[in-house]
């Protein structure tokens, strides 16, 4: 079964903050971090992100569950980078040479990316998904994008369930996955089936939406308000983002 992204969206100290403030300030910080040129500053920003993760009180296991995929990607990047930039040789594997510049650049990118994904996780996991969408709507994010996010969220669960059911049904009829051509064929046809099902589901969902007056955009009621605490949080984060560049500049 999959972990749910908003499982802890109600018991973090950050969860009651106005989501618009959270989105704006954390996005500002993310952009600021990925544009930082110096290693010391990026390391500092990463420490700050980790500290914020602790403040958010998201359980570490939960955080790692969501961070493991981006971290794997980042590690892979870190392994490739030293060999792909020319400069002062440091060591070599076979006849490919790792350079000091490549190493440094790889570490820089890896730290920036780690910091960014941690901040993004904090932003997403401490906010209920629906509230996040309302914030995006209020921030004038294009409605099509909001709808894409909304449907991915809602129907990923339904598809996961559908896939589980198909897998169980296959197993109930004696299918047990091995590394064989037959397994691949069965899995392939299951994927195909899932595709057809999703296509048909999409059509019915569209019909059902039109039956309730859907005209291309999804509007939501919202009762978002920003108080002193929200402004304080946003100012603090944005000030930190600015400071990183002032010191670095």
């Amino acid at each position: 079964m999959h972990q749910e992204i908003d499982k802890y969206a109600h018991n973090s100290p950050l969860c009651n903050l106005d989501p618009r403030m959270k989105v704006i300030s954390l996005m500002t910080l993310i952009f600021s971090v990925v544009l930082l040129p110096r290693l010391e500053l990026v390391s500092f920003a990463l420490l700050f992100s980790i500290a914020l993760l602790f403040v958010s009180r998201l359980p570490l296991r939960f955080a790692l569950h969501f961070l493991k995929w981006p971290f794997m990607f980042i590690t892979f990047f870190l392994l490739i980078m030293p060999f792909s930039i020319e400069g002062t040789p440091v060591f070599s594997v076979g006849n490919v040479i790792a350079t000091y510049e490549g190493l440094k650049y790889g570490v820089l990118i890896a730290l920036r990316a780690s910091s960014a994904v941690i901040l993004a996780l904090i932003m997403i996991a401490t906010t209920k998904f629906g509230t996040l969408l309302k914030a995006l709507e209020k921030l004038k994010v294009p409605n099509a994008l909001i709808q894409i996010l909304m449907f991915s969220y809602r129907y990923s669960f339904t598809f996961a369930q559908e896939f589980d059911r198909m897998r169980l049904a296959a197993r109930a009829r004696g299918f047990n996955p091995k590394t064989s051509m037959r397994t691949l064929r069965v899995l392939g046809s299951m994927a195909g089936m899932l595709f057809v099902k999703s296509y048909e589901r999409a059509e019915r969902v569209f019909w059902a939406m039109r039956a309730r007056g859907y005209d291309g955009s999804v509007r939501m009621l919202s009762e978002l308000k920003a108080g002193r605490r929200d402004w304080a949080f946003a100012c603090f984060i944005i000030a930190f983002a600015a400071l990183l560049h002032l010191v670095g500049g």
């Binding site: 998904f129 629906g130 909304m150 809602r154 339904t158 589901r201």
Partner: peptide
């Protein structure tokens, strides 16, 4: 009902 309920809450 899964065809019909699509919003987050």
């Amino acid at each position: 009902p899964d065809d019909q309920l699509f919003m987050p809450t």
